[in-house]
Amino acid sequence: MSVANQTDLVDALLIKSEVEDFFSLESELLDERRFDEWLDLLHEDLYYWMPIASNVRFDQPEREYTRGRGEANWFDEGKDILRKRVQQIQGGDHWAEEPRSRTTHLVANVRVASTQGGDIGTKCRFVVYTNRLEHDTELFVGKRVDVLRRENGQLKLVRREIYLDQSVLMSRTLTTFF
């Protein structure tokens, strides 16, 4: 956090605190299965993207993750598809989430990377723990790059890049949100 003076520092801390609070609220809503309220935190223009990682040579880091809008990805979608995912879970016959998983979303190392207009660019790390049925446990760990947009005084998520630290997905399904 590089800031010129005390006022800027206070502003920056306030924004960081607001962002952290936003992420905590998201985690809380997801873990309490209040998916409709979580959807309300998403901007209508949301871009939600989780590329697939592969093993590439050290000098070709740009090839490590598949490109959005053109290549295979775990997720590469907008709010319309996320809404369908929520609808599917809420029907009671989406077997991969019925009965529902127990989940805990942890977000850490939150940093405000940029502020521009109403947009706040952020970086963080996540740990998502899921457990379902008797002993089906998954651990998803990775990095996130998010953009929050302020609209009518309220923050909404407008872009989420999710970099999962796996190449072969070690889980049979990705039914949780990140």
């Binding site: 590469d76 979608e77 599917q88 077997w95 991969a96 399904t173």
Partner: peptide
């Protein structure tokens, strides 16, 4: 491509239930 991603594989709305079963 978008149709595949929402249909198939571990994040696919369809095949998730196959893998579960």
């Amino acid at each position: 491509r978008e149709y595949y991603l929402r249909y198939a594989g571990p994040a696919g709305l369809v095949e998730q239930d196959d893998m579960e079963n």
